[in-house]
Amino acid sequence: MHLNEDQIQRFLHDELDALSKKTLSQHVEGCESCARLVADAEREENAIFDLLAHVDHPAPRVDAVSFAPKRRTLAVWERWAAVVVVVAALGGVAYAIPGSPLRALVEQVAEWIADGDSQAPPVGKSPTNAAPVTSGIAVPVHGRFTIEFTSEQGGSVAVSLTDEPNILVRVLGGTATFTTDVDRLTIDNRGSTADYELEIPRDAPFVAVSIGTREIVLKDGDAFATGLPTDERGRHVFSLSTPD
């Protein structure tokens, strides 16, 4: 009995069960022909594996820690948004207190609106003069990154480069929900008519902006690949509802 092809490979790779290993080892020790076959197979394999190393590139230097979701520090606008929320909450509590002067003030304003009085209210400014409500997000970018709008709905998107280290997204005149991942920012714009401003760090190696799976803008290294028109500020602009 001599070793067959499967046994030679398994013998070589230590893939035999204990009994077979013992039996075949004893055989190879006493069989010159099989010993030569195993030696030849090993030599041939080593030669192939040495050849394969010629097409290798250095592995990227990545740390396991980098796969953990990144803790994001709050941007300035986020801190202000938090302050606004807290103030609004405190205002609600103050309004709810019986006899609160805030309640009286609000009721006075409400009466003024209901009467259609042309005289200015005692406090506040005209909402028509106010800027669109702006929300947004700042996301650090460390490698390849995708910004995805979930829906072909809404206004326009203006894309520009920035020297800041973070991708900045501003939502103008509407709402959107953000979901961040290590390499992706998903902007849920379903049912929204908002406009957006995207600022992409000049140093970001690769950023794709897409609507669903449809890629609209690609930044790869220094190359900014897009056939989109630019606005008066030199920003590339596309429409969410009718993508270019």
């Binding site: 097409v55 290798d56 590139h57 592995a59 396991a64 796969f67 390849r144 290590v182 390499d183």
Partner: peptide
């Protein structure tokens, strides 16, 4: 596993950038 998975993919396709992306995404 990371280095050998990268090397396997790199040898498979000959594109180290793609191999690095896929290896990292796999661990994600």
């Amino acid at each position: 596993h990371f280095d050998r998975l990268f090397r396997y993919l790199d040898r498979l396709c000959g594109d180290p950038d793609l191999a690095a992306d896929v290896a990292q995404e796999t661990f994600v």
